[in-house]
Amino acid sequence: MRSKITGLFLFQVFLCLVTITLVLIPLFWTDIPWPTIARDHMENFGMAASGARNMVSAIYLGYRVFDTLGETIVLLVAVSGTIGIIAHGGDVLAKGFGDPSRNESLYQEKTTLVKKQRTALLEVVTGKLGPVVLVFGFYVMLFGHLSPGGGFQGGVVVASGIVFLALGGRADGSTRLTEAGVLAKLESISFLLLILASLSGVVFGGGFFANTLAQAGMPEVGFIVLLNAIIGLKVGAGIGFMCIAMLGRAE
């Protein structure tokens, strides 16, 4: 039995190696040079056209902004699905499957264990570190056109800060950022703002996702900063909401 499982495992490893070899060998053996047209175009004209020094954020918020819209919708669906699973199967997830009587005692045991593990060290460190992480997240989010980062990265860092605040904050209501209702509203409003910002080009005759701020006389890069801020808020609120729901505080 055991040798059979080991043999199956080794066979899977062998299969993975064969697949990787089949995919990678044509890449290395080909004589056709890598295409350089898009790269050279971005290098020569990208910064002048978009105004962003960070070319990555110029691409995913300017040249390929439809991809970003799709990713945002994917994240929205993922968060909705997670919340749906937690809302309908949360008790099962929290207590484990199988024998209900034994798991009930196990659940109680674990709950007291978790309460015992909430030491002063955890509360002080995460409570003090949370605001600093939040500020860094907003920096990464708002300066995504100049330095490495952007909406998604800053949003995830903001979500980490929200989790820190939720772990470290005592229940005296010093911040409302860790409340599930506030986060859910924040995410919905940011997604509405994203749709409105993308549709605003249509009103001014530019087309979907046209740069309306540039047409109004603002710098070209303003639209990228706006989209970065909206996406960062949406990602931060969404992932923070998901983590807080998994912490069991979604009531």
Binding site: S57, P148, V156, V157, A159, S160, M242, C243, M246
Partner: peptide, 18 residues
């Protein structure tokens, strides 16, 4: 560096918590 920030925040931070 963009990918590095994403990997550190998502992989080492959020997914570990989850």
């Amino acid at each position: 560096p963009d990918v590095a920030i994403t990997e550190a925040a998502v992989g080492a931070g959020v997914s570990t918590v989850i």
